[in-house]
Design a protein around this nucleic acid. Structure first.
Lengths: 211, 211
DNA sequence: AGTAAATGATCTACACTGTAGAGATCTACA
DNA sequence: TGTAGATCTCTACAGTGTAGATCATTTACT
């Protein structure tokens, strides 16, 4: 009966969603389950193992959204499904992105997600020798983007913080000056992600055409 | 006299390089400097502030490699300088990548690095309205790539761990099967990064041509 | 030169963290 | 019934970041 493991994961996910990944401690999870901290260890090996399992739960959600449209749908749709469900998952669970970069993508859930992308790229006509590379390229960008968005690299709020070129500078910033007009405006992150994915599709297309 | 601050950063960087980011504790840094832990606080505000400052030091290295070839060199060279120096820095300091996704890019060092990319993209003929987006796209990919490489997402060693499609699977993996031949082979990460950057250049070119 | 203020460093203490180790309890199978 | 295995509890240890009070030293101003 590994229902206890699921119970532990549920509690850990709830804590991460509500109070951030930093609040996920063995003690906190144990208390949420109604048990002492050491009682988690028969089910979870490690704290790292717990985090891996949490990530797996969310990855399962990524490809769970896909099979409904697998097979006859075009490769574009499948690539977009990956990108957009990954992003939408991360807005509800902002802590995923920081995790995904620190663990090898070898769990069952991760491999299934990757297979989804392999199929899309093959159908797009990408030469098989290039498919693994392009999968990593696409995956890396999407993961990096949502990590930046939810991790704070793009800056807090809707305004691009790079627009605030500070007074505290040694050298000149010709690029920022030339773009001053565009940097003032707030950024529509939905539109930007959409445009990025479209550019990625074109990149895939171009590799397919070249090969 | 803020020489003490530099001394602290030197010690913190040395510890991170030698024993990993996890070994960077206030106590460890203090001991390396030859002082009690609390003596760091007049110089560093926080542990988060210390990590930010460490990241800043390395970012400074990224654009320090650039001005030598600024101005008359082509945009491709400048884009490549960003990508390759970022990657080469990360092999000596594998901990950067995990930091760069967790802090907004608003420090002086980060802004200067971004300006380098702005200039390159403008020279490439990218419409100004698209330059900030493409800067984020390129930056996100490069950072995501080195985070994956040094953080373990691409798997340990030189062999692609995704080639080891495990026996522990529920569903079939058509993509992995179709690619079996190519997934067996070890990956040349230098060549892959090179190919990715070339694809990125083509992407930039295509946006410039379209606009 | 004398005094006030700021700065730097120290020591103690608190509330955390992950988890090793020893026992207790309960379950399943011989 | 006896025994092996799993699950859980309790205690304890070696860490963590940092708040608070204290003391020394250096700087700035009258």
């Amino acid at each position: 009966m590994s229902g206890k493991r699921e119970e532990i994961l549920d509690a850990a996910l709830a804590i991460a969603d509500e109070r951030g990944l930093g609040a996920v401690s063995m003690r906190a999870v144990a208390q949420a389950v109604g048990v002492t901290p050491m009682a988690l260890y028969p089910h979870v090996k490690d704290k790292a193992g717990l985090l891996d399992a949490m990530l797996g739960r969310l990855l399962a959600g990524v490809y769970a959204a896909a099979p409904a449209m697998a097979g006859d749908t075009g490769w574009r749709e499948r690539l977009r499904v990956f990108a957009f469900t990954a992003r939408s998952l991360s807005v509800g669970h902002p802590w995923v992105a920081s995790l995904v970069f620190s663990r090898p993508a070898v769990t069952a859930d991760a491999v299934t997600t990757i297979d989804l992308l392999y199929g899309a790229l093959l159908d797009a006509g990408v030469p098989p020798a290039q498919v693994p590379r392009l999968e990593r390229l696409v995956g890396t960008f999407v993961l990096g983007w949502i990590a930046s968005e939810s991790g704070g690299r793009f800056g807090p709020g809707g305004t691009d913080p790079r627009g605030r070129r500070g007074r505290l500078h040694q050298g000149p910033l010709p690029g920022h000056e030339a773009l001053a007009t565009w940097l003032e405006r707030p950024v529509d992150w939905d539109a930007e992600f959409e445009a990025d994915v479209a550019d990625l599709e074109r990149l895939v297309e171009s590799v397919a055409a070249r090969g």
